[in-house]
Nucleic acid binder design. Structure first.
Lengths: 112, 112
DNA sequence: CACTATGCGTAGCATTACTACTTATAGAAC
DNA sequence: GTTCTATAAGTAGTAATGCTACGCATAGTG
Protein backbone atom coordinates (compact mmCIF):
# COMPACT_ATOMS: atom_id res chain seq x y z
CA UNK A 1 0.00 0.00 0.00
CA UNK A 2 1.20 3.42 -0.92
CA UNK A 3 1.46 5.86 1.96
CA UNK A 4 0.45 8.77 -0.22
CA UNK A 5 -2.92 9.05 1.43
CA UNK A 6 -1.41 9.18 4.87
CA UNK A 7 -1.41 12.95 4.92
CA UNK A 8 -2.07 13.98 8.47
CA UNK A 9 -2.06 10.51 9.98
CA UNK A 10 1.61 9.63 9.82
CA UNK A 11 2.40 11.36 13.09
CA UNK A 12 -0.07 9.17 14.92
CA UNK A 13 1.51 6.05 13.47
CA UNK A 14 5.00 7.11 14.49
CA UNK A 15 3.89 7.96 18.01
CA UNK A 16 2.09 4.62 18.26
CA UNK A 17 5.24 2.81 17.14
CA UNK A 18 7.11 4.43 20.02
CA UNK A 19 4.47 3.59 22.59
CA UNK A 20 6.03 0.29 23.65
CA UNK A 21 9.42 1.84 24.26
CA UNK A 22 12.22 3.75 22.53
CA UNK A 23 13.06 2.89 18.94
CA UNK A 24 15.30 4.30 16.26
CA UNK A 25 14.03 5.29 12.83
CA UNK A 26 14.92 2.11 11.03
CA UNK A 27 13.23 0.07 13.74
CA UNK A 28 10.11 2.22 13.49
CA UNK A 29 9.82 1.31 9.82
CA UNK A 30 10.15 -2.36 10.71
CA UNK A 31 7.65 -2.11 13.54
CA UNK A 32 5.02 -0.49 11.32
CA UNK A 33 5.62 -3.03 8.58
CA UNK A 34 5.09 -5.87 11.02
CA UNK A 35 2.07 -4.26 12.70
CA UNK A 36 0.34 -3.96 9.35
CA UNK A 37 1.32 -7.34 8.00
CA UNK A 38 3.62 -5.81 5.44
CA UNK A 39 0.99 -3.49 4.00
CA UNK A 40 2.73 -0.33 5.16
CA UNK A 41 6.19 0.27 3.70
CA UNK A 42 7.42 3.70 4.71
CA UNK A 43 10.43 5.04 2.79
CA UNK A 44 13.24 6.51 4.86
CA UNK A 45 12.73 9.88 3.19
CA UNK A 46 9.32 9.95 4.80
CA UNK A 47 10.03 8.94 8.37
CA UNK A 48 13.33 10.66 9.14
CA UNK A 49 12.02 14.14 8.44
CA UNK A 50 8.78 13.24 10.22
CA UNK A 51 10.63 12.12 13.34
CA UNK A 52 12.51 15.42 13.38
CA UNK A 53 9.23 17.29 13.07
CA UNK A 54 7.88 15.39 16.05
CA UNK A 55 11.03 16.07 18.02
CA UNK A 56 10.84 19.78 17.25
CA UNK A 57 7.22 19.73 18.33
CA UNK A 58 8.30 18.26 21.66
CA UNK A 59 6.31 15.05 21.24
CA UNK A 60 9.39 12.81 21.22
CA UNK A 61 13.00 13.16 22.34
CA UNK A 62 15.97 11.66 20.57
CA UNK A 63 19.41 10.60 21.73
CA UNK A 64 22.40 9.24 19.86
CA UNK A 65 23.94 5.90 20.57
CA UNK A 66 26.32 3.55 18.78
CA UNK A 67 25.44 -0.10 18.31
CA UNK A 68 27.71 -2.49 16.40
CA UNK A 69 29.69 0.40 15.01
CA UNK A 70 26.63 2.15 13.58
CA UNK A 71 25.20 5.29 15.04
CA UNK A 72 21.55 5.36 15.95
CA UNK A 73 19.12 8.00 17.06
CA UNK A 74 16.71 6.50 19.55
CA UNK A 75 13.45 8.30 20.08
CA UNK A 76 11.02 8.02 22.94
CA UNK A 77 7.64 9.55 23.71
CA UNK A 78 7.47 12.60 25.94
CA UNK A 79 4.47 13.03 28.25
CA UNK A 80 3.13 15.50 25.71
CA UNK A 81 3.67 12.93 23.00
CA UNK A 82 1.67 10.36 24.93
CA UNK A 83 -1.17 12.84 25.31
CA UNK A 84 -0.95 13.71 21.62
CA UNK A 85 -1.09 10.02 20.71
CA UNK A 86 -4.20 9.57 22.77
CA UNK A 87 -5.82 12.56 21.09
CA UNK A 88 -4.77 11.43 17.64
CA UNK A 89 -6.15 7.99 18.25
CA UNK A 90 -9.61 9.28 19.04
CA UNK A 91 -9.33 11.77 16.17
CA UNK A 92 -8.60 8.82 13.89
CA UNK A 93 -11.65 6.95 15.15
CA UNK A 94 -13.83 10.01 14.51
CA UNK A 95 -12.29 10.58 11.12
CA UNK A 96 -12.54 6.96 10.10
CA UNK A 97 -16.16 6.70 11.21
CA UNK A 98 -17.04 9.93 9.41
CA UNK A 99 -15.50 8.91 6.10
CA UNK A 100 -16.98 5.44 6.34
CA UNK A 101 -20.39 6.98 6.97
CA UNK A 102 -20.06 9.24 3.96
CA UNK A 103 -18.76 6.43 1.76
CA UNK A 104 -20.84 3.51 2.85
CA UNK A 105 -23.66 4.77 5.01
CA UNK A 106 -22.49 2.95 8.11
CA UNK A 107 -19.93 3.87 10.77
CA UNK A 108 -17.53 0.96 10.38
CA UNK A 109 -17.72 -2.33 8.51
CA UNK A 110 -17.88 -5.32 10.83
CA UNK A 111 -15.46 -8.10 9.98
CA UNK A 112 -17.15 -11.34 8.89
CA UNK B 1 -14.32 18.01 12.26
CA UNK B 2 -11.62 19.61 10.22
CA UNK B 3 -11.19 18.21 6.74
CA UNK B 4 -7.46 18.88 6.77
CA UNK B 5 -6.67 15.19 7.05
CA UNK B 6 -8.81 14.35 4.06
CA UNK B 7 -5.84 14.51 1.71
CA UNK B 8 -6.43 11.88 -0.91
CA UNK B 9 -9.88 10.82 0.25
CA UNK B 10 -11.93 13.83 -0.79
CA UNK B 11 -12.42 12.56 -4.33
CA UNK B 12 -14.03 9.39 -3.05
CA UNK B 13 -16.45 11.41 -0.92
CA UNK B 14 -17.46 13.62 -3.82
CA UNK B 15 -18.00 10.66 -6.12
CA UNK B 16 -20.04 8.93 -3.43
CA UNK B 17 -22.19 12.04 -3.02
CA UNK B 18 -23.03 11.88 -6.71
CA UNK B 19 -23.84 8.19 -6.68
CA UNK B 20 -27.57 8.66 -6.06
CA UNK B 21 -27.94 11.06 -8.96
CA UNK B 22 -26.75 14.43 -10.26
CA UNK B 23 -26.08 17.20 -7.77
CA UNK B 24 -24.60 20.67 -7.92
CA UNK B 25 -21.70 21.75 -5.74
CA UNK B 26 -23.68 23.41 -3.02
CA UNK B 27 -25.92 20.35 -2.77
CA UNK B 28 -22.87 18.08 -2.50
CA UNK B 29 -21.77 20.02 0.56
CA UNK B 30 -25.22 19.60 2.08
CA UNK B 31 -25.35 15.90 1.21
CA UNK B 32 -22.01 15.20 2.87
CA UNK B 33 -22.98 17.22 5.91
CA UNK B 34 -26.15 15.19 6.30
CA UNK B 35 -24.48 11.86 5.57
CA UNK B 36 -22.00 12.47 8.37
CA UNK B 37 -24.45 13.94 10.87
CA UNK B 38 -22.96 17.38 10.56
CA UNK B 39 -19.39 16.24 11.25
CA UNK B 40 -18.09 17.06 7.81
CA UNK B 41 -18.30 20.73 6.80
CA UNK B 42 -16.53 21.25 3.50
CA UNK B 43 -15.73 24.87 2.56
CA UNK B 44 -16.65 25.96 -0.95
CA UNK B 45 -13.00 26.67 -1.69
CA UNK B 46 -12.37 22.99 -1.23
CA UNK B 47 -15.13 21.40 -3.26
CA UNK B 48 -15.43 23.65 -6.30
CA UNK B 49 -11.82 23.15 -7.39
CA UNK B 50 -12.11 19.46 -6.54
CA UNK B 51 -15.20 19.02 -8.70
CA UNK B 52 -13.36 20.65 -11.59
CA UNK B 53 -10.44 18.30 -11.06
CA UNK B 54 -12.80 15.35 -11.22
CA UNK B 55 -14.45 16.71 -14.33
CA UNK B 56 -11.08 17.19 -16.02
CA UNK B 57 -10.19 13.64 -15.06
CA UNK B 58 -13.35 12.43 -16.80
CA UNK B 59 -14.89 10.96 -13.65
CA UNK B 60 -17.86 13.32 -13.66
CA UNK B 61 -19.53 15.54 -16.24
CA UNK B 62 -21.06 18.94 -15.51
CA UNK B 63 -23.81 20.93 -17.19
CA UNK B 64 -25.18 24.38 -16.47
CA UNK B 65 -28.76 25.04 -15.58
CA UNK B 66 -30.71 27.91 -14.11
CA UNK B 67 -33.02 27.34 -11.16
CA UNK B 68 -34.92 30.21 -9.51
CA UNK B 69 -32.80 32.76 -11.32
CA UNK B 70 -29.52 31.25 -10.08
CA UNK B 71 -27.15 29.34 -12.25
CA UNK B 72 -26.05 25.91 -11.20
CA UNK B 73 -23.55 23.39 -12.41
CA UNK B 74 -24.96 19.92 -12.04
CA UNK B 75 -22.50 17.07 -12.00
CA UNK B 76 -23.09 13.39 -12.57
CA UNK B 77 -20.91 10.31 -12.48
CA UNK B 78 -19.50 8.96 -15.71
CA UNK B 79 -19.04 5.19 -16.11
CA UNK B 80 -15.35 5.75 -15.37
CA UNK B 81 -16.34 7.71 -12.28
CA UNK B 82 -18.48 4.84 -11.04
CA UNK B 83 -15.57 2.45 -11.52
CA UNK B 84 -13.24 4.88 -9.77
CA UNK B 85 -15.67 5.14 -6.86
CA UNK B 86 -15.74 1.41 -6.49
CA UNK B 87 -11.96 1.26 -6.49
CA UNK B 88 -11.64 4.12 -4.05
CA UNK B 89 -14.11 2.49 -1.70
CA UNK B 90 -12.07 -0.67 -1.42
CA UNK B 91 -8.89 1.38 -1.22
CA UNK B 92 -10.46 3.20 1.73
CA UNK B 93 -11.31 -0.07 3.45
CA UNK B 94 -7.73 -1.28 3.02
CA UNK B 95 -6.30 2.00 4.17
CA UNK B 96 -8.62 2.27 7.15
CA UNK B 97 -7.91 -1.30 8.24
CA UNK B 98 -4.16 -0.76 7.88
CA UNK B 99 -4.08 2.41 9.94
CA UNK B 100 -6.36 0.93 12.57
CA UNK B 101 -4.07 -2.08 12.81
CA UNK B 102 -1.01 0.11 13.27
CA UNK B 103 -2.76 2.35 15.78
CA UNK B 104 -4.73 -0.11 17.81
CA UNK B 105 -3.47 -3.56 16.99
CA UNK B 106 -6.76 -4.74 15.47
CA UNK B 107 -8.19 -4.35 11.96
CA UNK B 108 -11.30 -2.37 12.79
CA UNK B 109 -13.00 -1.56 16.12
CA UNK B 110 -16.30 -3.37 16.50
CA UNK B 111 -19.13 -1.16 17.77
CA UNK B 112 -20.43 -2.13 21.23
C1' DC C 1 -31.88 49.25 2.25
C1' DA C 2 -29.44 45.68 4.64
C1' DC C 3 -28.92 41.06 5.68
C1' DT C 4 -29.09 36.21 4.87
C1' DA C 5 -29.16 32.11 2.08
C1' DT C 6 -28.04 30.30 -2.19
C1' DG C 7 -24.61 29.53 -5.73
C1' DC C 8 -19.99 29.63 -8.38
C1' DG C 9 -15.44 30.72 -8.63
C1' DT C 10 -10.13 32.09 -8.12
C1' DA C 11 -5.41 33.33 -6.06
C1' DG C 12 -2.19 32.28 -3.04
C1' DC C 13 -0.73 29.60 0.92
C1' DA C 14 0.74 25.78 3.90
C1' DT C 15 1.37 21.26 4.90
C1' DT C 16 3.31 17.07 4.06
C1' DA C 17 4.71 12.78 1.92
C1' DC C 18 7.51 11.39 -2.03
C1' DT C 19 11.65 10.51 -5.19
C1' DA C 20 16.33 10.46 -5.62
C1' DC C 21 20.33 11.13 -3.79
C1' DT C 22 24.47 11.09 -0.29
C1' DT C 23 27.14 9.23 3.59
C1' DA C 24 28.74 5.43 6.51
C1' DT C 25 29.71 0.66 8.79
C1' DA C 26 29.59 -4.51 8.94
C1' DG C 27 29.40 -8.87 7.04
C1' DA C 28 28.96 -12.20 3.34
C1' DA C 29 29.94 -13.62 -1.26
C1' DC C 30 33.01 -14.06 -4.98
C1' DG D 1 40.06 -7.27 -2.20
C1' DT D 2 36.05 -5.97 -4.35
C1' DT D 3 31.29 -6.10 -4.64
C1' DC D 4 26.88 -6.62 -2.77
C1' DT D 5 23.46 -6.51 0.88
C1' DA D 6 21.62 -5.00 5.25
C1' DT D 7 21.71 -1.60 8.58
C1' DA D 8 21.45 3.37 9.73
C1' DA D 9 20.72 8.47 9.05
C1' DG D 10 19.99 12.32 6.46
C1' DT D 11 18.95 16.27 2.70
C1' DA D 12 17.11 18.81 -1.49
C1' DG D 13 13.67 19.49 -4.35
C1' DT D 14 9.04 18.28 -6.05
C1' DA D 15 4.09 17.52 -6.28
C1' DA D 16 -0.32 17.09 -4.54
C1' DT D 17 -4.08 18.97 -2.40
C1' DG D 18 -7.05 21.08 0.95
C1' DC D 19 -7.50 25.71 3.18
C1' DT D 20 -8.22 30.82 3.87
C1' DA D 21 -9.90 34.81 2.15
C1' DC D 22 -11.64 36.93 -1.18
C1' DG D 23 -15.01 38.49 -5.26
C1' DC D 24 -19.32 38.14 -8.03
C1' DA D 25 -24.30 37.44 -8.48
C1' DT D 26 -29.52 36.56 -7.38
C1' DA D 27 -33.65 36.02 -4.33
C1' DG D 28 -36.18 36.70 -0.35
C1' DT D 29 -37.01 38.86 4.28
C1' DG D 30 -36.95 42.38 7.71
Amino acid sequence: MRAEELKGHLDALLLAALEDGPRHGYAVIEALRQATGGRLELPTGTIYPALRRLEQAGLITGSWSVVAGRRRRDYQLTPGGARALSGKRSAWRDFSATISAALEGRPCPEPA
